[in-house]
Amino acid sequence: MKTDIILAGVGGQGILSIASIIGDAAINENLFLKQAETHGMSQRGGAVQSHLRISDCEIAADLIPMGKADLILSVEPMEALRYLPFLSPEGYVVTNTTPFINIPNYPDVDAVLAEIEKQPHFVAIDADKIAAEIGNKRASNVVMLGAATPFLNIEPEKIEAGIAHIFSRKGEAVVEMNRKAFKAGLDFAMANK
């Protein structure tokens, strides 16, 4: 078993929290894990991406080669488009449909989503809207994690345990809100994959 994941977004959107939760779940499953992060100008809304490799045997390299990613999990649609060259022919793109417009020449959102929808395997979800309905817009990254879970090769219960572990220091209310966000994303993906 191996899963190569590109996590993509903009600084402040919770990419590193997603990576921490997946990493926690993988380690608790006794899986091997390698991660390489590129932060860019994350404090200023710059591009952030992380290569996350999970396997049941040792992993030699941190970086995922072009055309070999099993999953692109993007919390922003233009960032999903940016990393499509990494996607394997059998891989999935899971992206938020809500743009983070941080540059004056941001491309037409409908055109970006149309390119993503040309992929043979994708889930496009309005994670911001779902997070707002749950009661916390900041949980959109965990909605995205839920939507990506069917493609991680890790049981959803293990990811949920990772959520509880990573957010436990913030209190039970925060853990529970993130569990709701996760479940909403998972339910959406199961109905739309």
Rank of each mutant, 00 (worst) to 15 (best):
G46M: 04
I54T: 03
A19Y: 00
D56A: 00
R53Q: 11
L73K: 05
E76W: 07
L63Q: 14
L52D: 04
R53D: 11
L73R: 04
G9C: 14
D108T: 12
Q13P: 15
M41Y: 02
D56G: 02
V75I: 15
L31G: 08
L87E: 09
E37T: 15
A19I: 08
S74E: 02
I27D: 02
L33S: 02
F32H: 13
E37L: 12
S88W: 10
N30S: 14
K68V: 03
V94L: 09
Y83P: 04
Y92D: 00
I103C: 09
G23V: 01
L81S: 13
L84K: 13
L73Y: 02
D24A: 15
Y92E: 00
V93I: 14
S20W: 04
N30M: 06
G45N: 04
K34S: 15
I18H: 09
I59T: 11
V75E: 09
T95D: 05
A111Y: 10
V10C: 05
L73E: 10
L113M: 03
Q35I: 05
N105P: 03
C57Q: 15
P85R: 04
L84S: 12
I54Q: 00
L87D: 12
P107M: 03
G12Q: 07
D56F: 05
S74F: 01
G9T: 10
G67F: 08
D70F: 00
L33E: 06
K68P: 02
K68F: 01
D56L: 07
A111K: 15
A25C: 07
N105D: 04
V109N: 13
Q13A: 06
V94T: 10
I18C: 00
K34M: 13
D24E: 15
I64M: 07
T97E: 04
K68N: 13
F86D: 10
G46H: 06
Q49S: 15
A60N: 09
A47H: 06
P89N: 11
I103D: 03
A19D: 11
E90C: 05
P65N: 01
K68G: 00
E58T: 14
V48H: 09
L73H: 03
L33V: 11
I15Y: 04
V94H: 04
S17G: 14
P99Y: 12
Q13N: 12
R82W: 02
V94S: 08
A8G: 02
